[in-house]
Amino acid sequence: MTDEWLMRAVREGDLTRMGVLFERHHRPLFDFLYRMTGDRGAAEDLVQDVFVRMLRYRSTYRDDGRFETWMFRIARNVRADHFRKHGAAVYVPDDDMDWATTEPGPAHLLERARDMTRLKRALQSLREDRRELIVMVRYQGMTHEQVGAILGADANTVKVRFHRALKELRDAFSRVPEGE
C-alpha cells in the first residue's frame, strides 16, 4: 500500500491507518527535526505534533500530491511554530561533543571527529532557510524537484539557493576556530 493510498483512507475516516504512516515516516521526520532544532527531546515532541496535525487537517490532503511533500510542509510549519515560541536553535547537540572528545583511537580519527564538531557548529550557525536546504538535500536525500515542491519553488531556483547555502557553509566552517 502506498503512502498516498493510506493517507486517502485516513482522510475518508480510517484513522488507524495513520499508525502505518507513523511507522514508515517517524524516523526521517525525526532526523529532519533533530537536525533543525539540535534538540532530541524537542524533535520527538515535534514529530508527534506533525502526526497529530496530519490527523486534524486530513481533509486538506489532495489526491494529486505526494504524501511526503504534504507531510514535510506540515513539518516545516510545526518547526516554525516551535522556533517562534522557543527561538531558533544555535547550539551543537551534546552527543556530538562527546563523540568528538572521548572517542578513543588513532590521532587522525580524533582530528576527524573534531572537524565534525566544527562542521556541526558551522551548520547550526547558518540561517534557518539555508540549513533547511542542506538538511533536505544531504540528509533526506531529496532531489531539487522534491525540495521545490515542498518550498513552492522551481527546481532551478532550489539549485541556485542550495549552491549558495553550501558556499555559506564552507565559509562558516572556515571561520570556526580549529580548537573548538
Binding site: F30, D31, Y34, R35, R40, A43, P93, D95, D96, W99, R112, D115, M116, L119, K120, L123, I134, R138, Y139
Partner: peptide, 8 residues
C-alpha cells in the same frame, strides 16, 4: 564530511 555526521 556532512555525510559522515552520525545519524540521530
Amino acid at each position: 564530511e556532512l555525510g559522515a555526521a552520525p545519524t540521530p
